[in-house]
Design a protein around this nucleic acid. Structure first.
Lengths: 166, 166
DNA sequence: TCGCTGATGTTATACTATAACAACAAGGTG
DNA sequence: CACCTTGTTGTTATAGTATAACATCAGCGA
């Protein structure tokens, strides 16, 4: 039961990361086709860059990467691509880091929770109804109508906890 | 029971806001005396400015306000004051807004949750153990050791929901 | 072909935050 | 009192994040 609500766990160093990227791009392609969205080469490339690691990446890092591609790029280029990817659920924004991370489950809208390791910077994405629901209940009790939940938890992932104890 | 975990509810327009400010400043003064912290005039003034409304305020708004006082001020002035106030629990930072809000209960460290009205911008601060605990449990289950929780919920407060329905 | 729409290019600027060093104030110690 | 230490504030400069505004271009349907 413990894994059921984990959309994306902390990935070990040795995992097949090419597969992660491929899956993310394939899913995005499928979803865009289904919804009539245009996954342009730029948007696809930015999504691929976001998925280069399982950790949040800053907009200006993406910008540098686009320039490394040889492409002329300025801030609006990457921010507009991110806007598209955010709106359609392909990436999430980590507010506490001003950074962006690939979404582990872009096929449906969801309220996610993030565990962010302060040591290795990797991120796990949860979609735990119990968390969302209790927050919704408390908000309801105060007459508050929720439109968005931002839940970001920082700390140490299991691996880093072992290597950097106490 | 519904009010028990609310450190600071949405304040109606007509409330005695002078009392809010006075209480916040008096509490800060007491806490600083107890802990051997120096609540300098600058820090006290920044805290007072943060408490001018029950909504998050940006660092540069505080900077402008300090300048309106006739004080010479530059960004580090306000950021250092905020750093002191944050470290010692007198204000909270709202990550999703890059803004700061007075803490409703600075006498003890706590993990707070914020409800942020997107219409009137007012903020309610909760300290709900049920929310903290369920997140802690889920994190524990993944081997994650929490150091900080950022929980910011945006939506419409009860009052705005009535006036701007649907 | 024309005109519409959405995407991208391009320039400029706004907003948020910190680094680094100087000056100063207060308290302790010789 | 002189001196030093520590913490706070002053000051200049710069880093980092994001958007406004307008130009251009590509694709598609009338």
């Amino acid at each position: 039961m413990s894994e059921k609500n984990v959309l994306s766990d902390f990935k070990p160093d040795g995992h097949n990361h090419e597969a992660c990227i491929d899956t993310a791009l394939a899913t995005a392609s499928t979803v865009c086709r289904e919804r009539g969205l245009r996954l342009t080469p730029l948007r696809q490339r930015v999504l691929e860059l976001v998925w280069q690691q399982h950790m949040p990446v800053g907009a200006y890092d993406l910008l540098d990467a686009l320039r490394s591609d040889g492409r002329r790029a300025d801030p609006p280029t990457v921010y507009r691509a991110l806007e598209f990817l955010l709106e359609n659920g392909f990436v999430h924004r980590i507010e506490s880091l001003n950074a962006y991370v690939g979404c582990g489950e872009p096929k449906h809208a969801h309220s996610a929770q993030f565990l962010i390791c302060g040591n290795c910077n990797r991120v796990a994405e949860l979609e735990d109804p119990a968390i969302s629901q209790i927050i919704s209940e408390k908000a309801d009790g105060l007459g508050f109508r929720i439109s968005q939940q931002t839940i970001e938890v920082t700390g140490l992932c299991g691996e880093c906890r072992e290597h950097a104890p106490a």
